Amino acid sequence: MNGADVIDIARDAVYTLLIVSGPTMAIGLGVGLLIALFQALTQIQEMTLTFVPKIIAIFLALVLFMPMMGAQMGDLMARLMDRVATGG
């Protein structure tokens, strides 16, 4: 295995990481922005107000996107094992 192979594997892993974590992070960001807007409009400055809605939204996003996440990670593992089996 040379440097180009390592860089190719790392690129594939980072791309898979972005695909797997992207939807959940985007939903967390969206809920956080909505809560911040709500706090700004109502002038309620409670720090703990953001935690419960974000936790619930991220949990629901994980449940919703889990099949896609598992498929992406399984595909990455299959590609890595194919490289190991073929030796390149």
Results as ranks from 00 to 15, higher is better:
Met1Pro: 07
Met1Gly: 13
Asn2Thr: 12
Asn2Pro: 06
Asn2Met: 08
Gly3Ala: 15
Ala4Arg: 10
Asp5Pro: 03
Asp5Trp: 08
Asp5Ala: 13
Val6Ala: 12
Val6Ser: 05
Val6Pro: 00
Asp8Lys: 11
Asp8Ile: 08
Ile9Leu: 14
Asp12Val: 05
Asp12Lys: 06
Ala13Gly: 09
Ala13Gln: 05
Val14Phe: 14
Val14Leu: 15
Val14Pro: 04
Thr16Asn: 06
Leu17Ser: 15
Leu18Ala: 14
Ile19Thr: 05
Ile19Arg: 07
Ile19Pro: 00
Val20Gly: 04
Gly22Tyr: 00
Gly22Met: 08
Gly22Ala: 13
Pro23Glu: 07
Pro23Gln: 05
Pro23His: 11
Pro23Cys: 11
Thr24Leu: 14
Thr24Pro: 00
Met25Val: 14
Met25Leu: 15
Met25His: 00
Met25Gln: 02
Ile27His: 07
Ile27Tyr: 08
Gly28Pro: 08
Leu29Pro: 01
Gly30Phe: 15
Gly30Ser: 13
Val31Asp: 03
Val31Pro: 01
Gly32Gln: 08
Gly32Pro: 10
Gly32Phe: 11
Gly32Thr: 12
Leu33Asp: 01
Leu33Asn: 02
Leu34Ile: 15
Leu34Val: 15
Ala36Tyr: 06
Leu37Met: 15
Phe38Trp: 12
Phe38Gly: 15
Ala40Ser: 14
Ala40Gln: 07
Thr42Val: 09
Gln45Trp: 01
Gln45Phe: 04
Gln45Ile: 02
Glu46Asn: 07
Glu46Tyr: 08
Met47Asp: 07
Met47Ile: 10
Met47Thr: 10
Met47Arg: 05
Thr50Leu: 11
Thr50Ser: 13
Val52Met: 09
Val52Glu: 04
Pro53Gln: 09
Lys54Cys: 10
Lys54Trp: 01
Ile55Thr: 08
Ala57Trp: 10
Ala57Gln: 10
Ala57Met: 12
Ala57His: 11
Ile58Tyr: 03
Ile58His: 04
Ile58Glu: 02
Phe59Val: 04
Leu60Lys: 03
Ala61Phe: 07
Ala61Leu: 05
Leu62Pro: 00
Leu62Met: 11
Leu62Val: 10
Val63Leu: 13
Val63Gly: 03
Val63Pro: 04
Leu64Glu: 00
Phe65Asp: 01
Met66Glu: 06
Met66Tyr: 13
Pro67Asp: 06
Met68Glu: 09
Met68Ile: 09
Met69Gly: 01
Met69Leu: 03
Met69Arg: 03
Gly70Met: 11
Ala71Trp: 02
Ala71Leu: 06
Ala71Glu: 11
Met73Cys: 06
Met73Arg: 00
Asp75His: 05
Leu76Lys: 01
Leu76Trp: 04
Ala78Asp: 14
Leu80His: 03
Leu80Phe: 13
Met81Arg: 03
Arg83Phe: 00
Val84Cys: 07
Ala85Tyr: 02
Ala85Ile: 05
Ala85Asp: 03
Gly87Glu: 09
Gly87Arg: 12
Gly87Met: 11
